[in-house]
Amino acid sequence: MTPTTTLRKTPLLLIPLLALALAAAAAPGDLLAAGELDAIKASGKIRVAVFSDKPPFGFVDENGLNQGYDVYLAHRLAQDLLGDPSKVEFVLVEAASRIEVLQADKADLVLANFTLTSERAQQVDFAKPYMKVALGVASPESAPITDLAQLVGKTLIVNKGTTADSFFTEKHPEVKLLKFDQNTEAFNALRDGRGVGLAHDNTLLFAWTRENRGFVTGIDLLGDLDVIAPAVKKGNRELLDWVNAEIASLTGEGFFQKDYDETLKPVYGDSVDPKSVLLTPEELEKY
């Protein structure tokens, strides 16, 4: 990242300023210990990291309220843990800071369309999954990308730190990547023709191409079928076990179908079969 010498010098010199900040930083909610269940119950709210700009999974609506598939689940978890669906404190994250919010104890749980990968699993603990996903590539209708071979030597737009980013970086270095931190920027870049296509989770692309005329999801199943799962801080066994039990029982009672109907169906319409997104209790056994 940056030269280590700089980083080593900086803190020493900043001690006076740091002391000042520490004195000012008596924010009570921030000083909680790791998200052990009792600590969460004692604090009266669960801190859940969600996206604020990725409809229909996690976004803020025009009234300033958090909405979406992940948010719907967060409210249910709060209901089951604390007896009140409103006892959630939403921490708004970017894709690139989802691991850091857990490691730095800024949130108890991440529900931010977080795809389970082996690299990430070394840094955080994933619970049982609540969604299935694969990669897709969206492109203009006039010049559709329907095969990976079309991408050789071309520029493809991806979001930094997403599965699409690591998939192409590792397995297809012959494709040039143009990386963005935010979805908004990435999709705008596709509209502006700054790349021949945009790779992202297929569900998100289905939603986007349905709303944006002139674009198609030319490749809808790329790489392995992945799953999206809640994540907790590494070693937070107690919360992990509780979330696992919750996911199992919620899948059994058909909660996620309800979640799908409320949040995803209005966006996907009939273009997506819910079975390709939701896990059955049998499928869940494997995780």
């Binding site: 990242m1 940056t2 030269p3 700089t6 980083l7 010098k9 900086t10 010199l13 900040a21 520490l22 000012a24 930083a25 924010a27 921030d30 000083l31 800071s97 850091e100 919010v101 490691q103 730095a104 104890d105 800024k106």
Partner: peptide
């Protein structure tokens, strides 16, 4: 030292690294 480090790196350093490495949990505004 400050001039060569991007502001974004400083933000991450003080918000995330300080907290995970030394349990110094400052609010985002501070």
């Amino acid at each position: 030292a400050v001039r060569v480090v991007p502001v974004l790196v400083l933000l991450f350093l003080f918000y995330y690294t300080l907290s995970s490495a030394f349990s110094v949990n400052l609010s985002a505004y501070v």
